[in-house]
Simulated scan of single mutants.
Amino acid sequence: MGDIFNVFDLNSSKINQTGVASVGYPQICLRTNRTAKRTNLDDVIKTADNIANKYPGDKAKSAFAVLSSLSELFGGGSFGHAWLIIFHSDKPGDYSSYSYHDGYGYVHNGDTGAGGHTNDTASRGFAYQHVKKINPEMIQALEKVIIPTLNGISTAIGASFGVQPASGRTGVYTATTNCSWFAGNVWNAVTNETVIFTQKFVGKEHANKWGVDALYLINEIADPGMIAESIKGGVGA
């Protein structure tokens, strides 16, 4: 993917392992380690164009190469991450975590096993966070209704890209159903707030060149930089 991995500004300088006591408990916390600067999608598009140019006339190979590279970019760590934590109390360790990760899809409380390369813990550093108190009943709705619904949507979108859930996992991580897509949708559904987590992306302008028909239906991309811009003045930021 070249130098594009070097264009994203990350900041993991803040640590908070028990939430914001003044908000009250339980509380939901949206975090990101991206600085408040949206991704320059022109750089991403240029990189994808260069990959597609390697496979003239071979739609299948072009699509596979482009989608694989974009998933690597968005899910490789250098792009930044967004994740959710519910702090049940101010007791250290009394929390639940939720996110999406490349290769796994939905990850709850780090359930990727000893070899899993994910980190959504309360001890992970972040640049910005936004915190809101929620009712205990909403936690059940989040886990039993909201997240399963999003997992179903991401699975359908993944299928349109030719990607299936990993063995034993639910939900599909793609460049369009990435960690910011998951975190932003869950936050807005739970809190009734409107955190802006996407920026415009006219997929139909790239569908033919990249060999990805599903892009005709895509008009936005979730971006941790957009989340950072949206919550930089939030509670607990």
Rank of each mutant, 00 (worst) to 15 (best):
A228W: 03
L41D: 14
L150W: 02
I227T: 03
I218D: 00
N219M: 06
A63M: 05
K209L: 14
P56W: 04
Q17E: 01
F79M: 09
G77R: 03
K144H: 15
G77I: 02
S167E: 15
G103E: 03
K59A: 12
V20N: 11
T177F: 05
N53L: 14
N185F: 08
V235D: 04
I147M: 10
F182G: 02
V44W: 05
E137T: 14
L41H: 09
S160D: 10
A52F: 04
S230P: 03
T191V: 00
R38E: 12
K14G: 07
K232Y: 12
K14R: 13
T155I: 12
Y216N: 14
Y106T: 09
H81K: 11
I134Q: 11
G116W: 08
S154F: 11
P224R: 01
S167F: 09
H130I: 12
G158Q: 01
N16Q: 15
D102E: 10
K54H: 10
T198I: 07
N208S: 15
G75H: 06
S78T: 13
T18K: 07
H117T: 11
V7W: 08
A52W: 09
L41Y: 13
V212Q: 03
T177A: 02
V23W: 03
N135C: 01
Y104E: 04
N188W: 01
V163I: 07
G75I: 00
A52I: 01
I139V: 07
W181H: 01
L30M: 08
D213L: 07
K91I: 13
A189K: 14
E229K: 09
A189H: 07
N6E: 12
P56V: 04
A159Q: 07
A48E: 05
Q140D: 11
S167D: 08
D213H: 06
K204T: 13
P26M: 05
T121M: 00
L215T: 13
A65I: 08
C179L: 01
A48F: 07
N50H: 14
S62Q: 12
V172D: 03
V163K: 09
I221D: 04
E72P: 12
S22D: 06
I45W: 06
I139E: 14
G234L: 08
A175F: 12
S68M: 12
I231E: 02
G152L: 15
T177L: 02
R31A: 05
A127W: 08
T35C: 11
K14P: 06
E72D: 15
V44R: 02
Y98E: 04
F64L: 14
G113F: 10
N50V: 15
G225S: 05
N16W: 01
V202L: 15
Y216A: 14
V212G: 09
L150V: 03
T112F: 03
Y95K: 05
I28K: 10
S12H: 04
K54S: 11
T170E: 04
R124V: 00
H206G: 04
D9V: 10
I4H: 00
T149D: 13
T174W: 02
E137L: 08
I218H: 01
L70P: 15
F161H: 06
S96L: 07
L150K: 01
Y216S: 12
T32Y: 01
L30C: 03
K54L: 09
